[in-house]
């Protein structure tokens, strides 16, 4: 069964822009990969994906300040007034 993969929708979700010329190529690759996946066996297990055999050690609630703002913002493409700048967003 040939499955439709909406590359445009996926690209939108992933915030990627795929050139029209590249679209078919990606779709072909994806279909190949999906086909590879298609023959996976059915596994009956309705449970959640959780592994109680590997419990997590939790962190103690203690605070510390190790970083200066300028160090943290040094890699930012655009900053102003101690903040990172992005195109205006309103919600």
């Amino acid at each position: 069964m040939e499955m439709e993969i909406d590359i445009k929708r996926l690209a939108k979700l992933a915030r990627l822009k795929i050139d029209e010329s590249r679209m078919a190529g990606f779709e072909k690759d994806m279909k190949g990969i999906v086909a590879m996946v298609e023959h996976l066996p059915e596994i009956s297990d309705s449970g959640a994906l959780i592994d109680p055999s590997a419990p997590m050690e939790l962190r103690e609630d203690v605070s510390e300040s190790k970083y200066r703002r300028d160090e943290l913002l040094k890699n930012a493409p655009q900053t102003q007034a101690g903040c990172v700048v992005v195109p205006r967003v309103v919600e």
């Binding site: 993969i5 590359i7 996926l10 690209a11 979700l13 992933a14 915030r15 990627l16 822009k17 795929i18 590249r22 990606f26 690759d29 994806m30 990969i33 999906v34």
Partner: peptide, 18 residues
């Protein structure tokens, strides 16, 4: 993201998103 990532990375991001 389109200019910063190469083709293989984009391919895997798309697959993972799917």
């Amino acid at each position: 993201r389109s200019e910063g990532f190469g083709t293989e990375v984009k391919r895997r991001i798309l697959l993972g998103t799917f």
